[in-house]
């Protein structure tokens, strides 16, 4: 109850910032569109109709090719772009959310253990360093290549990829919190390490966790799009933004909108999460506060 209060205070501060508010509203709209996708489109995202190939959208309304109903046009297999964007967003956002959550859980666990117990620090952080030596996407590629191409494996790959940076940041924060006098005070009152870690350290690290999670959400969405673009994320014909760009490559010169529209979806989502994370940090990060 008390923590909610504080988060509410932070949230209210966030809404005072125009840019952050716009991003927040955009994300909410996007979530509603994606979750209730069937309400906003009548077409099946995978239903093909070769008689309706490459029909332009609202920007060519005067053209005889324009079909009312397909307001964003159709792709090279006659599928409705608007439904593919909506259903594709389900994949992008849920993969982003799940992999970020998994990343947070394990990253926080490792980061807290490494920061709190000096003995574990070297072991854990060296393992994280090994993961760090792979250039981001390469690690994900490796994992997907080993486990096979499907959504679950792509999610696992992106989670593992985000663990080391979470762990490193949380560890830094824990090292800082550990030295605070209130931790000594609590220890002098007879609190156990487990209690201190879960009740005091974790709670004080929470603002940092929220901020990096928001930022990570953006990069996870970008990662799943990248993986799908490379053909290692979501297999066809399941709609996914990166995959849509990938298949549209071949008809890019006839129908550039097939690349641009999913591109805009990715960019808008990523920018929104990034700005939100940035503003959240301004509000929550104690090192930046007065």
């Amino acid at each position: 109850m008390k923590r909610e209060n504080q988060l509410l205070v932070a949230f209210r501060k966030l809404l005072k910032n125009k840019l952050a508010t716009i991003c927040f509203i955009l994300i909410i709209i996007e979530l509603i569109l994606v979750i209730f996708a069937p309400l906003f489109t009548q077409y099946d995202p995978t239903a093909m109709d070769t008689t309706l190939r490459l029909r332009p959208g609202f920007w060519a309304m005067d053209s005889e090719l324009y079909l009312p109903g397909h307001w964003l046009g159709t792709d090279e297999l006659g599928r409705d772009v608007w439904s593919r964007i909506l259903y594709g967003g389900r994949i992008s956002l849920s993969v982003g959310f799940i992999s970020t959550t998994l990343g947070i859980i394990f990253g926080t666990l490792f980061g807290m253990l490494a920061g709190y117990y000096k003995k574990l620090d070297n072991i854990i952080m060296r393992i994280m360093d090994i993961l760090f030596t792979f250039p981001g996407i390469l690690l994900a590629l490796l994992i997907v290549a080993m486990l096979g191409v499907n959504v679950v494996n792509a999610t696992i790959a992106i989670s593992i990829w985000s663990i080391p940076s979470f762990a490193r940041m949380i560890r830094g924060r824990v090292l800082q919190i550990k030295e605070e006098e209130y931790i000594t005070a609590i220890r002098s009152l007879g609190a156990s390490d487990f209690w201190i870690l879960t009740r005091h350290v974790l709670r004080n690290a929470l603002p940092t966790i929220i901020v990096i999670a928001t930022m990570r959400m953006a990069s996870s969405i970008l990662s799943i799009a990248t993986l799908s673009y490379l053909g290692l994320g979501v297999p066809q014909p399941t709609p996914e933004w990166g995959g849509m760009i990938s298949t549209a490559k071949t008809v890019m010169y006839q129908a550039s909108y097939l690349v641009v529209i999913p591109g805009i979806a990715v960019v808008l989502t990523v920018i929104c999460f990034n700005i939100l994370g940035d503003k959240l940090r301004d509000i929550l990060d104690p090192s930046l506060r007065d």
Binding site: K2, R3, Q6, E180, T184, S188, H200, R203, N204, L206
Partner: peptide, 16 residues
């Protein structure tokens, strides 16, 4: 029990 020198920092700032 121990009482610390600096009351400003000896309480967890995030908890009531």
């Amino acid at each position: 029990g121990m009482i610390f020198q600096e009351p400003m920092t000896a309480l967890n700032p995030l908890l009531t």
